[in-house]
Amino acid sequence: MAYECTDGGTGAGVAEPGASDSLRTFGAVVQALREHAGLSREEFGALVRFSKHTVASVEQGRRMPDRDFVERAEEALGNTGALRKAAPHLSRQAGLASWFRQWARLEATAISLYTYECRVVPGLLQTEAYARAVSLNVPPLPDPEELEERIAARMARQELLAVTRKPPTAFSFIVEQAVLERWTGGEAVTREQFDRLLGVIEGNWNVEFQVMPLRQPSHAGTDGPMRLAETPDNQWFAYSEGQQNGRLIAHAKEISLLQQRYAKLRSQALTPEDSLGLLKRLRGAL
């Protein structure tokens, strides 16, 4: 079951997609089946183990339902097969920042994805509360509808992490310790974000997570964040992003340079084991 990648996932100034006809139709069917079963959104949410707000977002066509939602909804609503058969055909409108669209298409089918981030927790690893805080921190402030669409798109994008994808994508994340200790959104948001990181690291064997320590005299990433992606036919692409712009990189020489830098960053960051230990200590201190 495929779900389209829809979100840049880093800064707040990236335009997000709106609801598509397919999402609105799917949501209307969910709502009709739920009401036919005599369930409130809160009651249905308890059955599918999602919040009533998530249920509302799906029913209103603002959120791409992930595999767990579809399967649990089928069970809760009589196993008609309608939701399961409709889910592979769901898509969002383009709605991405123009500079991110090509990368999003590559990322959705990549077999390897490497991310170095020095600004925020990568979008694939953000909680809903953290994504909201990031979106509200950077002017201009989005209107409420845009904010909800942005967050929904970011959460839907996290389907890429699933180990059940065929083949599952191999992820490497390197994140600056300063990003983790910034407390974006406050203590409660940070606590939840640490729990999310720990859950992904310990529960997804396809994810490697490393922390770049605060003190590292030799640092290969001082030119800023970077992403690298390997396609199913083993071609490599790269992406760099700044203020209100981004650049897809396809030139072999540039990609080779960024691969060298990423390899160096991996050797300079804490090991995955030490990174996990640091995360647990930071979480325990909250």
Score class of each variant (00 low, 15 high):
149 E>C: 11
209 F>V: 00
42 E>L: 12
10 T>K: 12
85 K>L: 13
124 L>H: 01
255 I>T: 02
250 A>G: 12
144 P>K: 04
127 T>G: 03
107 E>Q: 11
12 A>P: 13
96 L>V: 02
69 F>A: 03
156 A>K: 05
232 P>T: 08
62 R>H: 15
124 L>P: 02
208 E>V: 11
13 G>K: 07
241 E>Y: 02
267 S>N: 14
156 A>D: 01
149 E>S: 11
68 D>A: 14
68 D>F: 13
209 F>C: 01
204 N>D: 03
283 R>T: 00
264 K>F: 12
252 A>Y: 01
20 S>I: 10
15 A>E: 10
123 G>R: 03
262 Y>N: 10
176 E>T: 12
94 A>G: 13
238 A>T: 05
71 E>W: 12
175 V>G: 00
249 I>K: 00
182 R>V: 06
191 R>S: 10
259 Q>G: 00
47 L>S: 08
231 T>F: 06
128 E>N: 09
188 A>C: 04
107 E>I: 10
101 R>H: 11
25 T>Q: 15
177 Q>G: 04
43 E>T: 07
161 L>G: 00
195 D>V: 00
176 E>G: 13
34 R>Y: 11
88 P>N: 10
236 W>G: 00
32 A>C: 08
233 D>T: 11
111 I>F: 06
52 K>Y: 10
255 I>C: 02
13 G>S: 08
73 A>C: 00
7 D>N: 15
285 A>C: 10
233 D>I: 07
129 A>L: 07
17 P>C: 09
209 F>M: 01
193 Q>C: 03
132 R>K: 13
154 R>D: 07
237 F>E: 03
184 T>L: 15
177 Q>W: 04
10 T>A: 11
152 A>L: 04
169 T>L: 11
108 A>I: 05
48 V>M: 09
141 L>R: 09
268 Q>W: 09
81 G>W: 13
213 P>I: 08
179 V>W: 08
43 E>M: 11
230 E>A: 07
84 R>K: 14
3 Y>F: 14
150 R>S: 06
272 P>F: 07
282 L>H: 08
91 S>F: 14
82 A>P: 05
20 S>R: 07
46 A>T: 04
281 R>Q: 14
123 G>N: 11
183 W>T: 08
197 L>R: 00
143 D>L: 02
59 E>W: 03
105 R>V: 13
223 D>I: 11
171 F>L: 01
261 R>L: 09
263 A>E: 15
258 L>G: 01
104 A>P: 08
57 S>N: 15
2 A>P: 13
284 G>W: 09
242 G>F: 04
53 H>F: 01
211 V>A: 03
207 V>K: 01
88 P>H: 09
201 I>Q: 10
19 A>E: 08
12 A>E: 12
119 R>E: 15
270 L>Y: 15
173 F>E: 01
40 S>P: 06
157 R>K: 09
6 T>L: 10
191 R>W: 06
192 E>S: 13
81 G>T: 08
160 L>F: 03
252 A>G: 00
175 V>S: 03
5 C>K: 05
69 F>Q: 01
202 E>T: 14
256 S>A: 09
43 E>V: 13
93 Q>T: 14
23 L>E: 13
134 V>Q: 07
48 V>Q: 06
15 A>D: 04
101 R>Y: 12
27 G>P: 09
203 G>W: 11
226 M>D: 02
237 F>K: 08
75 E>T: 15
246 G>M: 02
147 L>P: 02
